[in-house]
Design a protein around this nucleic acid. Structure first.
Length: 591
RNA sequence: GGGGUCGUAGUUAAGUUGGUUAUAACGCCUGCCUGUCACGCAGGAGGCCGCGAGUUCGAGUCUCGUCGACCCCGCCA
């Protein structure tokens, strides 16, 4: 028999199609075999249509329909028929009609699936092992489809703003700065390696030198670092670069882009400009550079007041360059266990403990109030705007530890007290980052952003004389406390770039070897330029309210960076290694 | 590199102080059933309790190791 040709999909048949003879194709979503009449929910990408097999219509077809099982792939030809009033299914858009099947073709059989597609709590292990089946599930299909639509929105928006999508190489030169590189051995250059791009940073800058003015790319990037719920070794960036621009323009264009993406994925209109906050303000008020501003709960500085008290611990912390900060958990009703739990959770950030004060109608309660004078307590409570029922939670010690633990505490308290509106979309620009930070390991300066970021200082000497005070023309985009992008205005002047390298203790020779082609390009009429990169996966994760970035990636890796389906990475033939002049130090037989 | 949670039929889970034949739901198989859409009814099959040691008369249960998944710290310009 000649194969039937699909005339309609499973989501489109309506009463307007009554009496038409149609052919639908898809998967058997479920079967309800009554012995006499058999009902099949036939599913394809577009929906579900009920197919009816009745011995009165075609005895032989009905006979064969008994053999159908879940996920068989079939073609069903028959007449679109109205359902009687009492058999209409209001849950289905196609629920007022059904196809009375006359001709059935079984296009493929299916083994019993390792899990049921309508099961909502399959372990991720199982989902990843059979990802192609996981992706068959409606929830996953919706995510993948929205991902496509978001990508199209991005291309449409940027095209309308005169951007050109230009591809950059995947096989690149390795540079030791930044994240660990994924390396690819070169067969024709024995002993040499390419690196996969951590981002197309230098190439997009070169495209500005080439005069393309407005570049974008939806591009895979690779970083060989440990994974997290929001971090994959390969991920997708929306990479953007603009010539003759400034930070404001980059932010404006990005805001327009984000609003379009939100409209596409989530359906909502975001009004007004995104908020902006300086890096210093973010650190001081929220303890981190990506604060979740869906709720207030600011961190207050008590170093002055508490550091000058008679409480020896606070006193010595303040004298040795430490800080004392606190948040006010309003009307918290914490039990002693709650406080202990929070204290334990802070330990991972290096906090040695968490002092607290309970505010009651009768006065303050805490193991530490006896160390403070009434005046000091009054001053602290005034700063904290304490009211009966509140809990004041302290962090004291090294600034980095206090900030990290109070930033965590702020989120933990926000969640416990239900201060967070789960439906809010709070976009925030964080600006005025320091140019450099000290590497805790070796004490050397390193770029907070990357070494091509333009400093905002007027005097280039500041870069080497007081580098830690220099602010950069960089900006991060934060959504609900998640960093979804970042960028900067770049250095387009060779002298300035050399000064930055000097501040980073990258010598002329080293700079020449690693970035010589960029330095050279800057000498040939490089226009002022800047841009940013947005984390496409993270944006989708946030907008689709997924727990993990893996849920918006078709074929993600596990935390150990392996693919449970294909079992990558794997050993390779010894022959392959020899061809590449490689020998593994691992205790494996690569035969 | 470190901390934590978890691993029991195909799936998701229960499993008492260590004690008879390891439960349940869904799925699967067989039969019956002409209006179901979470179809129904009757019956049935299905287990390396992740893996390996140890303790014990006896281990799904306790101990150690190991493998894997997840969350976090470090790391991620």
């Amino acid at each position: 028999m000649e194969q039937l040709r699909r005339t309609h999909n499973c989501g489109e048949l309506r009463e307007t199609n009554l009496d038409e003879t149609v052919t639908v194709m898809g998967w058997v979503d479920s079967r309800r075999d009554h012995g006499g009449v058999i009902f099949i929910d036939l599913r394809d990408r577009w929906g579900i249509t009920q197919v009816v097999f009745n011995p009165d219509i075609n005895k032989e077809t009905h006979e064969r329909a008994h053999t159908l099982r879940s996920e068989f792939v079939i073609a069903a030809q028959g007449k679109v028929t109205a359902r009687s009033e009492e058999t209409i299914n209001e849950k289905l858009p196609t629920g007022k009609v059904e196809v009375y099947c006359n001709t059935l073709q079984i296009l493929n059989k299916s083994d019993v699936l390792p899990f049921q597609l309508d099961d909502t709590d399959i372990t991720e292990n199982n989902r990843l092992k059979h990802r192609y089946l996981d992706l068959r599930r409606k929830e996953m299909q919706e995510g993948i489809i929205l991902r496509h639509k978001a990508a199209k929105t991005i291309r449409d928006y940027l095209d309308a703003h005169s951007f050109l999508e230009i591809e950059t190489p995947i096989l690149n030169k390795s540079t030791p700065e930044g994240a660990r590189d994924y390396l690819v051995p070169s067969r024709v250059n024995e002993g040499m390696f390419y690196a996969l791009p951590q981002s197309p940073q230098i190439f997009k800058q070169l495209l500005m030198v080439s005069g393309y003015e407005r570049y974008f790319q939806i591009v895979k990037c690779f970083r060989d670092e440990d994974l997290r719920a929001d971090r994959q070794p390969e991920f997708t960036q929306i990479d953007i670069e603009i010539s003759f621009t400034n930070a404001n323009e980059v932010m404006e264009i990005t805001e327009g882009l984000m609003k379009n993406i939100v409209k596409t994925v989530d359906g909502r209109d975001i009004e007004g400009n995104f908020k902006r906050i300086s890096w210093h303000e973010a650190m001081n008020k929220y303890g981190c550079d990506k604060p979740d501003l869906r709720f207030d709960l600011e961190i207050k500085d008590l170093t002055e007041i508490a550091g000058n008290s008679d409480f020896k611990i606070f006193n010595s912390i303040a004298k040795s360059g430490g800080i004392i900060k606190a948040i006010n958990a309003k009307q918290a009703e914490f039990s002693r266990k709650d406080l202990d739990d929070l204290t334990n959770e802070l330990a991972v950030y290096g906090a040695k403990g968490m002092a607290w004060i309970k505010v009651t109608e009768e006065g303050l309660q805490s193991p530490i109030i006896k160390f403070f004078s009434q005046e000091t307590l009054d001053q602290m409570m005034e700063v904290m705007e304490a009211k009966p029922g509140d809990y004041i939670l302290f962090g004291a010690g090294k600034p980095s530890i206090v900030h990290a633990s109070l930033a965590y505490l702020r989120l933990a308290v926000g969640k416990r007290l239900n201060l967070i509106d789960e439906n809010a979309l709070n976009f925030l620009w964080v600006t005025d980052f320091p140019m450099f930070e000290k590497d805790e390991e070796n004490g050397k300066l390193k770029s907070l952003h990357h070494p091509f970021t333009k400093p905002l200082c007027t005097d280039l000497k500041d870069l080497t004389e007081k580098p830690e005070e220099v602010i950069s023309d960089a900006y991060d985009l934060v959504l609900n406390g998640c960093e979804i992008g970042g960028g900067s205005i770049r250095i387009h002047n060779v002298e300035m770039q050399k000064e930055v390298f000097k501040a980073l203790k990258i010598g002329d020779e080293e700079a020449q070897e690693k970035f010589g082609f960029l330095l050279e390009a800057l000498r040939f009429g490089a226009p002022p330029h800047g841009g940013l990169a947005l984390g496409f996966d993270r944006i989708l994760m946030m907008l689709l309210k997924k727990e993990s970035i893996r849920d918006v990636i078709a074929f993600p890796k596990t935390q150990k960076a392996s693919c449970l389906m294909s079992e990558a990475p794997s050993r390779v033939d010894k022959k392959q290694l020899i061809e590449l002049s490689l020998k593994s130090l691992a205790n494996l037989d690569n035969e």
